[in-house]
Amino acid sequence: MSLFSDNIRALRVRNKISQEKLAEQLQITRGRYVKYEDGTSEAPYDILKRMALYFHISIDLLLSVDVRKINIEDLIKLENNRLLLPIQIDSSGENIIEVVTQKVKAGYLSGYADPEYIESLQQISLPFLGSGKHRGFPVEGDSMPPHEEGSIIVGRYVENLGEVQDGKTYILITKNHGMVYKRLNKNKKNTLVLESDNSFYPHFEVKFSEILEIWEYQCNIGRTDTKQPLTEMESLKGILLELKREVLEIKGQRVQ
């Protein structure tokens, strides 16, 4: 039997429903359903979708994760039953912050929905962050100063794309661009514009359908204390303040 076959049988038994009743809910015959459960036939996409909706679990988990090893109630349910987000809690019932280090980053795209992968990540606790599900992600490159390569960005999970606010920074997990940290703008229908704070890097667009996860920036964990260079506006402000000081000094000398 396949993992999928084991999963649908386990979910059916867990829900205390007969093969005949489940087949009825899926709008197929019992004979057809039995072939999926015993592994002699593969379910087409429309049937997979109906099963996912019925059991309130994502298709990717049905096909790739042994649901007998996890508690479905410990997964965050997303809008439209799109997928389930694995989470972990400590002995007090508080969410644990998993950290996706540079070493394991490559595996996140295939493991983000796998509870066993999430369980293997390093963990930290930051009580000051408050409510919400948080996770840490590594910074790459110099496109988003002052965050430097090697730092960790901690983000709060965004359940609904409607929560995304123009001008704020987010970590995105995408099908085509992988893991990116950018400033977002929703100036096109069904599309996000991703911008780097370092103007050297051009902005680009990502369709909503390409997005797997979005995490809103909450804090940065880094090791550097390097002083950041002044921006053009800050430099200009400094020059004007210096001129103002000199003018005041000249006026003071004339009064004397």
Rank of each mutant, 00 (worst) to 15 (best):
L236A: 09
R254P: 04
F137W: 00
I211M: 00
L121W: 06
F137K: 03
G136Y: 06
D66N: 15
Y117P: 05
G39Y: 02
G162F: 01
N187E: 11
Y36E: 01
L121Q: 01
L129E: 07
G150S: 10
L11C: 11
G39T: 02
K189Q: 13
G167I: 13
Q27R: 12
L184W: 07
G155R: 00
S92E: 13
L3R: 02
N185Y: 15
F55S: 00
S64P: 00
R245M: 07
A43P: 02
L248M: 09
T231K: 10
L230T: 13
T101S: 15
P145L: 11
R223P: 03
T191L: 04
K133W: 04
H134T: 04
D46T: 14
Q253F: 13
H134L: 01
Q228F: 03
E159W: 06
L26G: 06
K168Q: 14
D38V: 04
I118H: 01
I171L: 09
D74A: 09
G252S: 14
Y117H: 10
I89G: 00
D6P: 05
G162L: 02
E205C: 09
P138S: 12
E234G: 08
L63M: 10
S5P: 08
E94D: 15
K35F: 01
R183H: 05
I118K: 05
P229E: 06
L161G: 13
P44T: 02
L243H: 12
F4K: 02
P86R: 02
K207T: 07
K168C: 12
Q102W: 00
T224S: 15
L83R: 04
V13N: 14
I72E: 01
L126W: 05
V154G: 02
Y108C: 02
A106W: 01
K49N: 10
F128C: 12
G162A: 09
I59H: 04
G107S: 15
I250W: 10
S91R: 10
E195T: 12
L53E: 14
E246C: 04
I59P: 04
Y45R: 09
G252L: 06
T226K: 04
V180R: 02
I28N: 03
I8L: 02
L3Y: 01
Q228I: 01
V139Q: 03
P138T: 08
L63R: 05
Y108E: 04
E149A: 15
